[in-house]
Amino acid sequence: MKFIDCNHQANIIHQYVEEQLHHSYLKEYIDHPYIDRDRIHFLLLPFAEADGDISLEEVQWISTAMLLQIALDTHEKVTNSEFDPLKERQLTVLAGVYFSSLYYKILAETDEVDLIAILAKAIKEVNESKISIYKGDHADITALMKTLKKREASIISNFFAFMDDSRWEEVVSDVLVYKRLIQERSSLEETETTTFLQALAKVSLPSALRESGLLKKKSEGHRHLLSSLDRLIEGVKAAVHRNMEDGGLIAPNLKKIVLELLPYAEPREMTKLYAEEG
């Protein structure tokens, strides 16, 4: 499939997902769910060598994986804050449940019981990873990164397993982790905390530094955490490059997406320097 064709297919899937997500009452109260185009492209990879358009059934398969991701992302927005407006919280919970029931309904209508099972396994893995990150029960950074990879990539990895095509799994998982780390970095810069940042602080900073206030810009804890993140970003980026160089099978559209993404977060000089200083 040529890149232009992939884009066309991605548009069809995007449109299909949009239609499924539409709910007149929900949209009054909750933010429109974010549809990650990169994920659509990744899910299209097993079809990259096909001639012509993918079938409606295949559009539905990919769309259900997207809906599921959106459902889980929606539930991630439910916080413990007492200050969140009640109605928004209630509808956020229900929107997530609604989107995940749509995944089941679409696959049930196409009689694709195996994909229902494999994506259910993915939901299970994502939630096990999420709670593990939330509770911060990791011995070290390596263990935390392994859990993060599972959280970010389980749905796509399981979809590839369903397609019996594991060629892209490693590189796509790394790219998804990379994208997440960039988002985490932005959160930190905007002094917003996340479950991952808290877990990272727990395994990478001494408690005295954690207590110094991670979210206070220019505080020692904040700078240390930023530097840890930059090292992780560099490490994942290098892994993606290695994967792209080693694997002769990288599809042109994947390469294009990855190359567009990777330069996005060059660490700034200050944090680079800080990292070198240790």
Partner: peptide
Amino acid sequence: DNRVAMYTGDYIFARALEYMTHIRVP
């Protein structure tokens, strides 16, 4: 808390679907 409840609810839902897929009647 709410977060643990959300993760637990989604986890139980996933297990429900996994069990149901043992029934192979579309």
